[in-house]
């Protein structure tokens, strides 16, 4: 019960998010890009549940339409670091030696860079935009995954079945891929779910600053930035996208925490 309630809530939110991202057209009450000069900055009402923006666009529709980009951010900003970090962690954890020592030093030094500042600096070099943001996140974020994977691999390495596999004469590659990886990957995947919550926050923050998704790409952070000049007079502009970010973040973090408790994964 203590595990299932948050996990169930998290999964429910994620399911809703997936449906929104899969078939936004079926859910949006209005055309998300349709201007309506009769209803500029309209307050929330039965017609426009979350009001309209300065061009009369329906906020709810825009928020639903934007879910696709934010879900994409959650996945892509996680996948790069996950793949790079896992491969590096697997290799240094298994082979140890100088590569492992070098990795240790490197990891120590990367944590001294403020994550967001380094991502911003890399985006500055590459130019604003989603693709460049993914590259920047991958450059910095792999370290966490590599550390996790390395730790798990070192535990697995000393396990009996690994020794048994070596006695049976299996190749290193086979032992690594068929035996070590499946056992070591669980905590890494659980972390990846939590990491998607962080990715949504990072993506929307960069979008808000103008460094992530670029208008007219509809992204929640960008939507909020769009309405920021009307924040005191028409605060509803930012309400729906803001709530969407919080819910999506909660969805991923509750699911991640729930899975961690359910699978009894130690961090």
């Amino acid at each position: 019960m203590r595990v299932w309630l948050p996990l169930g809530a998290g999964l429910l939110i994620l399911a809703a998010l997936l449906v929104m991202a899969a078939v936004p057209d079926l859910l949006t009450p209005y055309d998300p890009l349709g201007f309506d000069y009769e209803a500029l900055l309209a307050e929330p009402s039965p017609a426009h549940l979350f009001g309209t923006d300065q061009f009369g666009r329906d906020i709810l529709s825009r928020t639903i339409a934007a879910s696709r980009i934010d879900l994409q951010i959650a996945v892509f900003a996680m996948v790069g670091p996950l793949l790079i970090g896992s491969v590096i962690g697997l290799l240094v954890g298994w082979f140890g030696g100088w590569a492992d020592a070098l990795f240790g030093r490197l990891a120590d030094i990367v944590v001294t860079f403020p994550f967001l500042v380094l991502v911003i600096a890399i985006v500055a070099v590459l130019g604003p935009g989603l693709i460049n943001m993914y590259i920047a996140v991958a450059c910095v974020g792999w370290v966490v995954y590599a550390k996790l994977m390395r730790g798990e691999v070192r535990v697995q390495r000393s396990a009996d079945y690994v020794a048994a596999g070596q006695v049976l004469g299996f190749s290193t590659g086979r032992v690594l891929l068929r035996h070590v990886l499946p056992n070591a990957v669980r905590p890494v995947l659980v972390y990846a779910v939590t990491d998607m919550a962080l990715a949504i926050l990072l993506g929307s923050s960069l979008g808000y600053l103008g460094l992530g998704a670029q208008p007219p790409e509809a992204e929640w952070g960008v939507l909020i930035a769009d309405g920021k000049n009307f924040f005191t007079t028409a605060p509803w502009i930012s309400l729906a996208p803001g709530v969407a970010i919080v819910l999506a973040g909660l969805g991923f973090s509750l699911t991640g925490d729930g899975l961690q408790a359910l699978l009894d994964v130690k961090r």
Partner: peptide, 8 residues
């Protein structure tokens, strides 16, 4: 709070 972005 942890799921709410700082700018928001």
């Amino acid at each position: 709070g942890l799921s709410t972005p700082i700018f928001y």
